[in-house]
Design a protein around this nucleic acid. Structure first.
Lengths: 216, 216, 216, 216
DNA sequence: GCGTAACCGAGACGGTACGTCCAGTCTTTGA
DNA sequence: TCAAAGACTGGACGTACCGTCTCGGTTACGC
């Protein structure tokens, strides 16, 4: 008994794949995730529906990949610009700054995150994808692995550096500590309990770091 | 421009409303939220589809109310039992215990929350509803207002008591502080980044309270 | 076992009945028979649906009565005018003229009928009612009995007079003969095979009467 | 402004089309036209509703085509048998007999028509379709063009032959003349004014032909 | 003159079918 | 041989009416 006949990916049309990414992102941007349909994506991409079903298991999977592709292209671009230009670092791209003042560094990064999450155009698709991942475990795992974990790793790195510098107690688990920082932001963003502001980001950093720092 | 003509709620059939709640909860339990349809709920409840559309704007709204009704009935029942019985308090029902040891009290409650969230049968519909609320702002607002906020209030109350008792610094905002406690749990539960354990709950309490407590 | 409980017609609201007639005729005129609904008639008449269901078995029955009522009012009006005025006779009202020239008399009447049937506004509801009667035997019987037969009787009367006058052979059955005259018109009107013109009406009279008249 | 995007008829599924015809005819036969629904036809045919809506604008249109298909198949069958067998002609199939005696030929055919119209099973759907065509001009036009006109042409042919043979006056318009013959039958059939009998058919032929024949 | 029975407007109810939309599969055609 | 195109079955969607029912209120009859 043969497995469900995986298509031969070497013969895959790159042209179609790009067109599908573009169409998917455009439609989600224009009409929202819920109103975006596979049929619509196929039509917009000038592609047969079967071409989508052949390579992706669900609408959400298409969008996930489209996002990753977008992110990859942007970061490639950024990397190119950066190499040519100065050497500035930014949170999403290459890491959390390390000026020696952990609180200041975290506030900088979390404030930027707040701004990003508050931008409705940019955040809406992420929100939709997050929601889908909450319900669909397979998609959620992918979401975490390919979008969230890389970000989280940056915090872990920075926190370890802070531990080495004595800014954070050594017996703290950075993996847990970082959740103290980002979970409250995510919480407010996803559930919309209260507005997500710079002041809130600062407050979170202050409350959390006090718990993490060694007694003076 | 006249509003869409709200039906006369005094003439509403209570029989149908209960039947719809029951059918909705049963179907979600049996087949999952995504596979539950309004048509299915109506059929199972022995009710015309229009009766659902007349009173609720969406499947999610039906379920939300069904949950609230269930919770209300359970708490009414619990209250009845309680009045007749001892005077024990539990987190979901009437508040967070106050033994004088904030850390212990919080660990107790958060461990119970962890257990609840780890029970697939009970948590699955909540997860679905949460996801829906993330995408649909109106529903999300209702979700927060009617399900989340009451719970949150319990933490605020307990934290204020702790402030009065000198266990927590007076300049802490309880509304923010409680998010340091529950957001990490919610984060792991929704995104499934790492397993949600009692140990994790304890760790969160320890890390967070250290930041909140006055210097010894 | 009691019969289905006929309502007490002495207590019937005349106000409602008139309002229903008016609403029904207005709606059929505005939106056509098929799009006219009982619900719509009730709403327009400012009447509960039950009031319609109490007194009529179907939408078609309502309309039939509304027509009959309209016709009755119009003929009452005409009769009043006539009494006051000259003594002119018209086909629909008081009979087919008898000038001694059967062919001329019939052509006059049939041409008027042609004009009436060609007036879309006036004929559309009749067409709809006829179609309904074709499918629903009970309604059809009523239609024939209360609308068609009275008209037919006028032809019978005129043809008998013609027989007495020797214009038509005595062994002719007037009931059959008249169908030779009006059935072709009805046929073209209902089925729209070919245009319904004065010339056609004349032709029918000529062809038919030649068969009915005694050999010269 | 693009037209509503006509589907590509070369790719149409013949299997589905036949199944829909069969289901439609079966349901009309079993439950009557009014109670036959598109949903029911689709279910019975094992076909998606959309496949019906894709190719037909209405229930009536489906049935019209189903009838035409049935008639076509029957006549094809008859033609096959005929080719193999004798050379007999019948009214519905290949024409009105021409024995030289117009009256006798017409009586034969009209009596057969009477029998057909009096057969409730066979006539009920035709009646429904006729009624529908009376109300819906587009459908009516199709009905006339594809079902009625071919029949009518047979009469025209026979009448022309009678004119050539001197049985009917040359200045008679056969198109009008035939309506004198068939309209009365149609009239009684549709409106159910009086029973439709062989005697009536004979009477109609006698009355009408006397008007059409040359003076002896 | 006073119940009381009935009709009345109103509209919610359980249903049925509508016509549309999309999912996911299958088939045909062209490159 | 894959991809485009798109027709197919299936089924939920949300709407519109159906015919029944229940609800107050308002007549108008019979005691």
């Amino acid at each position: 008994m043969a497995p469900p006949k995986a298509p031969d990916s070497t013969r895959r049309s790159d042209r179609s794949r790009r067109a599908i990414y573009d169409a998917a992102l455009a439609l989600v941007g224009e009409t929202g995730y819920a109103k975006t349909t596979i049929e619509g994506i196929a039509a917009r991409a000038g592609v047969g529906k079967q071409t989508i079903y052949r390579w992706w298991p669900s609408k959400a999977a298409v969008l996930m990949e489209a996002f990753l592709d977008l992110a990859a292209r942007q970061s490639a671009e950024a990397a190119g610009g950066e190499a040519a230009g100065a050497g500035a670092t930014d949170a999403a791209g290459t890491g959390i700054p390390d000026t020696g003042d952990l609180a200041a560094d975290l506030k900088l990064v979390l404030r930027a995150t707040v701004d990003e999450l508050n931008d409705p155009a940019a955040a809406a698709p992420t929100r939709a994808l997050t929601a889908e991942g909450i319900v669909d475990p397979a998609l959620g795992a992918q979401f975490v692995e390919r979008l969230l974990d890389p970000q989280i790793q940056l915090y872990v790195t920075r926190l370890r550096a802070a531990q080495d510098a004595g800014e954070v107690r050594a017996d703290i688990d950075p993996r847990t500590a970082l959740e103290l920082l980002i979970a409250p932001l995510t919480h407010r963003w996803l559930l919309r309990t209260l507005p997500l502001t710079h002041a809130y980001a600062d407050e979170i950093v202050d409350y959390a770091l006090r718990g993490l720092s060694p007694r003076p």
